[in-house]
Amino acid sequence: MDIKEIYAYREMIFSLVRRDLKGKYKNSLIGFMWTFLNPLFQLLIYTFAFSVVMPINVENYYMHLFVALIPWIFFSACLTGGARAVTDQQEMVKKIYFPREVLPISFATSQFVNMLLSFLVIFVVLLLSGIGINLQAIVWLPIVFLIQYVLALGITMACSAISVYYRDMEQIFGILSLGLMYACPVVYSMDSVPEEFKGIIRLNPMTAIIEAYRDILYYKNVPNMSTLMNALVWATAALIIGCAIFDWLQRRFVEEF
């Protein structure tokens, strides 16, 4: 992998991200609002299910859920949608040279920007609900963003490359994503997990990241350092493995289309 070359193609990454964000909603009725509406609907549904139908005993449950759900949607989009990051652009890949890493990078980046925009809603709700924001905690947020971005990038690299060879992987990633969501404290709290299962839940690369977000935004605490380190190790491992898989598979992309 040639990082210098990828850096030389940074304008392409920006262009593709801009194209993705601008083009997606250009012809839709409420345009960019979709970015906010989709997570809001999910929030509504889960809140109904887990605070009305099967109540989970957590104060301000919707907020407890919301700060975890938005990062989760970002992760899940990279896992399932990332599968198409290369195959959707096969016309381009077949006909023109550019460092192939640009495609997963720009996919993950545009999903990341989507998540950042959704965070605006989180801040608004935090302020309106009276929960408020702790400035001492919030300065840690960019670090968590960065760790999650690294993780998402690694996942997107791996998924996008594998899917070129096996097109039905997207379905498998979809099922995997659903399973991982419930094996991660998104809809429930880590405290409610029985002690013997905590170890397994912590094997989920997203667990530490979700806990860090929740510490910062919901509990308004400085995140636990061991949680952050845990998240960083997962993210770095994912990126290294993702890059290795991508590098190994990308040479024969064109011949596989």
Binding site: E11, L16, M92, K95
Partner: peptide, 23 residues
């Protein structure tokens, strides 16, 4: 390469040229 039908010609110039590695 990379043309998006909903974006203007000018915006597409930027996308297309960036694929050739231009800053």
């Amino acid at each position: 390469a990379g043309f998006h039908p909903d974006l203007s010609g000018k915006e597409n110039i930027y996308i297309n040229a960036s694929i050739f590695g231009l800053k």
